[in-house]
């Protein structure tokens, strides 16, 4: 039981090859960050995970089911995908309608719809926006509407495509809390992000992509500690990792606590 990419390749119509021979397994309940330069193939890769793209070569299995044999609508019940651009996803007139849409489509009892919507809203902090038109609320907050809409479908795996873009302190904290809650429920979270401090704080496993391929898959410490990977995937080390390296401190230092501990010798 897991999401398995087996030598999966994908070309867009017209022949542009976006993913080449990807092999990757996401276990239930796991939390994985996908990082890498613009155009590396991150979004294409996650769209293969929920059946929006079917591999041109190789296989993608969701809990043993080959995505080729099922519709994206079927797979979306297991793997939820939150679009990079919220405007590509939203189509209802109010935030509430947008979040209720899928549970209603599933014809769930009213009580269950209410439970799911309430939980999704609590996790995304959208209480005060429920009656608004999604297009009248600020862009970074609109992103939470799309996250809530996907959470209300209660998938087993959730994919966030650049949720950190444009987020302020409030938004980043909501995201971090949300991921912790999903982890408690055993829901796997795959997140594409360019925010390396966010990665350092929240992810144990990091997948680095560059030019259509996965070039590294390891712990945050391993990825940020590997200069060749950092350079090839055009990511940046966390600020305090750079600081620790400049000071010649040993070990994998990723966060503020790591660095203070190393310097004050509390360990």
């Amino acid at each position: 039981m897991s999401i398995e990419l087996k030598n999966a390749s994908f070309s867009y119509p017209g022949g542009f090859l976006a993913n080449e021979n990807l092999t990757l397994t996401i276990a239930p309940g796991e939390r994985v960050a996908i990082v890498g330069q613009n155009g590396a193939g991150k979004t294409t890769c996650v769209k293969m995970m929920n059946g929006l793209h079917k591999p041109c070569d190789g296989d993608v299995l969701i809990d043993g089911e080959n995505t080729r044999d099922f519709t994206a609508a079927h797979i979306a019940r297991t793997v939820g995908y939150v679009f990079q651009n919220p405007d590509d996803q939203i189509f209802n007139q109010s935030v509430r309608k947008e979040i209720e849409y899928m549970p209603r489509y599933f014809k769930l009892p009213d009580e269950e719809i209410r439970r799911r919507v309430d939980r999704a809203v609590a996790l995304t902090g959208l209480e005060k926006y429920m009656k608004k038109n999604p297009f009248d609320i600020p862009y970074p907050i609109r992103k939470f509407v799309t996250i809530a809409a996907v959470l209300a479908t209660e998938p087993k795996y959730v994919i966030f495509d650049e949720p950190t873009a444009g987020q302020d302190k409030w938004g980043t904290e909501i995201l971090e809390h949300l991921m912790d809650e999903l982890e408690k429920d055993g829901i796997a979270v795959v997140t594409i992000t360019h925010d390396m401090e966010f990665v350092a704080r929240n992810f144990k496993r990091v997948v680095a992509m560059a030019h259509k391929n996965i070039i590294a898959d390891g712990t945050a410490g391993e990825i940020f500690g590997n200069d060749a990977v950092v350079e090839e995937s055009r990511i940046l080390k966390p600020q305090l990792t750079i600081l620790a390296e400049s000071l010649g401190l040993p070990g994998q230092i990723l966060t503020c606590e790591d660095l203070v501990t190393a310097l004050t010798g509390l360990n």
Binding site: K169, W170, T172, Q239, L240, E257, V260, T264
Partner: peptide, 20 residues
């Protein structure tokens, strides 16, 4: 004030809190 401090500034405040 709803803003985030630079990583190294946060580190500076944490060093002060740790007594160094």
């Amino acid at each position: 004030l709803g803003a985030v401090a630079p990583q190294v500034s946060q580190f500076g405040h944490a060093m002060a809190a740790a007594g160094m």
